[in-house]
Design a binder for these strands. Structure first.
Lengths: 342, 342
DNA sequence: AACTCCACGTTAATCGTTTCACTTTTTATT
DNA sequence: AATAAAAAGTGAAACGATTAACGTGGAGTT
């Protein structure tokens, strides 16, 4: 005969210990209680295998100790690395993390944001794409802190943590320039995405600083997916005057670009130089080793999580915070030194 | 003056509509209500921007419409692909997904399992590693369905969804054999992991079926991490009589193995043939294109999610279910044809 | 001994739903 | 029109915690 064991409540504990529910509750919530009673309660808790019912608690306190993380995709290293870090930090504070993936789809992004709000999360970390800014404003107004990652949203005062994308691109392209490249292609992300704009700005600025002309034919816009990388790299290769080097501004498109080169049997860096983005593992497994821009993803996650904790504690100092973290360049062997200009 | 808008409750709706709370509740839960009242309630809901408080509901119903997913790592394609699929299916049914990552750490795995139970999830999907089986039994007894993925646990009757690892390995090694390889190395996972055992069994069985001897020196055990792949591949290469082909049984070790080969400048497949595991993107970006075993990760996620839904609805038919899905082999150019045996 | 404090306890209301056990209204039947 | 049966609506008690507001007993003071 299986008896389904029914979970003990605080009432049971109180009875077992011969005290009132209120006393037990207080003890559990860290309020002082007589030594003697402390013992009795502990004993009762152990004997009954009591655990507070978070739901009931949540109903009273209007807190769920749950936060939502909304990202473009679970199949993308940038997002998952951040999520992984965020989750581990939040867990330390007793929060659980609901992760939602919106598949690069604006509509889904909006829906899932609502879903999280509906689930009454205590806070949200969002890597935004096309969210309706009013939703964020609304959330903030309802006292649900939101931390943006990677992309700011026009017209919304909101904490944000991101990489210094402009300088990431600036530095990457500078490497190409100092190695002698003059016709440098860039495969950008969508024009309406902040991060993508910043990366392009970096490309443009370094050209200005070196007084190099910008050839519009060397700027191509993709959608951050593998296929874009393939298509756009092929377009470059088919140009009458192709670039000697290409800077690709995210991981998936870097993958695609390499696939395109491989399938045409083009040697890196002999025939074309490459700087990619974001995935150290990829960089090491490709031959020759790829030079890539590495975002401090762990750090981004760390800052975001800690900032969120702070906001959820009600500390609004420095709002809205903008944390901009430095990127790094990992040099491989995918960039050739050429002398055309000497 | 900012007025923080306080969410409307069912009571408010009832008052606005001039009905009782009970009626409103019933309507919301799909019980028939007079057409006229339907309208009034809808109107009230809209006017007050009412949304049910899931917490309060959960307190009464003892359901959270939340499920937990516990995986070894968020930085591993196998897990994230599954999670992504699971999440999207569950969401359709109104469930949210709490994702926990235990970093290949048994202790953390046990802790996070408890955490999920404590959060009162309605069900759990688990890719187990070293969990204490009593925890699962306990959960099942408390009527929280658990679906295992990829690895069964001795002594526990539990639904499980996995790939046919034995035949995956069998088929992969068979390809090597039919192409003339006779000294075939295998880089296995940890000996205490079910999946790893199965893959090794496949390797052994195909050898038996072709009446080939098994050389213990050709079997190496790793821990499913990149470094293992590097180390073990190097060990193979340093043997007096190295294998002509190596089958590597997970993604991370495949990465490592390729890094080892690259750093020693060994040509694939001219000097050694390779069959790897699990990552299609990787397979395409490496040169030459890698031959790999592909698990039907999406399908695994799909089956697991649907089975969980079924269990949560209280349908225990066919318990414990074992769903074993076929793998596929994606042939690249990393396997050489040799004629030693002709 | 009377009085004030202080530390610790307790009572009871409350959070926003669901649902049981009725009551009232509507419809169908004769 | 009367009545039974079916349908729709209601009041109030849960669910399991937190927390004001208040109660109590004993040490300290005079």
């Amino acid at each position: 005969m299986e008896l389904i064991k029914i979970a003990a409540t605080m009432k049971d504990v109180a009875e077992y210990a011969g005290l009132s529910i209120a006393t037990v509750s207080k003890y559990i919530n860290g309020i002082k209680v007589k030594e003697e009673n402390k013992k009795r309660i502990d004993e009762a808790i152990k004997a009954l295998d009591f655990r507070v019912n978070e739901i009931a608690r949540g109903l009273k306190t209007k807190k769920t100790t749950t936060v939502g993380v909304l990202i473009p995709s679970l199949e993308n290293i940038f997002s998952t690395t951040i999520v992984s870090k965020v989750e581990s930090i939040l867990l330390k504070y007793g929060y659980s993390t609901i992760i939602c993936d919106y598949r690069q789809n604006r509509e889904l992004e909006n829906e899932k944001f609502d879903f999280l709000i509906n689930k009454q999360v205590d806070g949200i970390i969002l890597v935004p794409y096309g969210i309706n800014e009013s939703k964020i404003i609304e959330a903030l107004k309802e006292d649900i802190p939101v931390i943006l990652i990677d992309r700011s949203i026009r017209g919304v005062d909101c904490d944000i943590v991101l990489a210094d994308n402009l300088n990431a691109a600036y530095n990457a392209v500078e490497i190409l320039i100092t190695k002698g490249h003059r016709r440098i292609g860039i495969i950008c992300g969508p024009q309406d995405i902040y991060t993508a704009q910043e990366r392009l700005k970096g490309y443009i600025r370094i050209h200005e600083d070196y007084e190099l002309e910008i050839d519009e034919n060397l700027i191509k816009y993709g959608d951050y997916e593998i296929q874009s990388g393939i298509t756009l790299m092929n377009e470059f290769l088919d140009q009458k005057n192709p670039p000697s080097a290409v800077f690709i501004t995210n991981y998936e498109m870097t993958l695609g670009a390499i696939m395109a080169l491989n399938s045409r049997n083009i040697k890196i860096p002999d025939e074309i130089s490459i700087i990619g983005f974001d995935n150290i593992q990829l960089a090491n497994v490709v031959k020759p080793k790829l030079s890539i821009v590495v975002q401090p993803m762990q750090q981004i996650g760390e800052f975001a999580a800690n900032l969120l904790i702070k906001r959820m504690k009600g500390d609004d100092s420095g709002f809205p915070a903008m944390v901009r973290l430095k990127t790094e360049i990992l040099e491989g062997e995918s960039v050739a030194v050429i002398n055309s200009y000497i």
